[in-house]
């Protein structure tokens, strides 16, 4: 495979029909590159849940993806309302989503936990009133299910949460 590939996707928050389009395009690219199917599956879930979150909570945003030899890195950035309590937001079943999310079939409080489960590393950085950045890393060589019971490390001194 060629050296690191950098991709950027603009995610619209107003066109619900397009929600998930960037994830579909990324999946197609990963297939073309010959990335293992199980890795594609995990990246697709991370990206898709993140994309839906940006649409329903933040009126869209930007997804930057880097595909390296060993890992796939994803940065999801939005300028939405931010997350007041990231630890709470990470709990399965916790949701602040409204009708827009439920109409799409989401909003059950499984998005961030799904992203955590499918990534090898995840950091959420958020400032209320300014926006949220979610970083995820998926190791290409690791195709088995990742452990779901990792500890949540939250430091009040920094806005980033390693999950």
């Amino acid at each position: 495979m060629e050296d690191t590939i950098k991709l950027t996707y603009e995610i619209s928050g107003s066109d619900l029909l397009q929600a998930g389009e960037a994830s579909g395009l990324l999946k197609l690219r990963l297939k073309q590159l010959g990335i293992p199917q199980e890795v594609i599956r995990r990246v697709s879930i991370c990206m898709y849940e993140g994309e839906i979150n940006m649409v329903i909570h933040a009126n869209g945003g930007t997804a930057d993806v880097e595909i390296g030899a060993d890992d796939i890195f994803i940065w999801l950035k939005d300028t939405g309302p931010g997350i007041p309590d990231i630890v709470k937001a990470m709990a399965e079943g916790f949701s602040t989503a409204g009708k827009k999310a439920r109409d799409l079939g989401f909003g059950a409080g499984m998005g961030l936990p799904n992203m955590k489960r499918c990534s090898d590393e995840m950091t959420v950085t958020s400032t209320v009133g300014h926006g949220t950045t979610v970083f995820m890393r998926v190791h290409i060589g690791k195709s088995a299910d990742v452990a779901s019971g990792r500890l949540l490390h939250a430091s009040p001194a920094t806005p980033g949460y390693d999950i």
């Binding site: 898709y48 799409l104 079939g105 989401f106 499984m110 799904n114």
Partner: peptide, 25 residues
């Protein structure tokens, strides 16, 4: 009908039964 649950629980190339009629399905 909840797509996040589909993303969370489906482990193989399964059949999806749903009443959610929108592009996200």
């Amino acid at each position: 009908d909840l797509m996040s649950d589909v993303l969370s629980y489906v482990k193989s190339e399964a059949l999806l039964l749903t009443g959610l009629v929108n592009p996200q399905a």
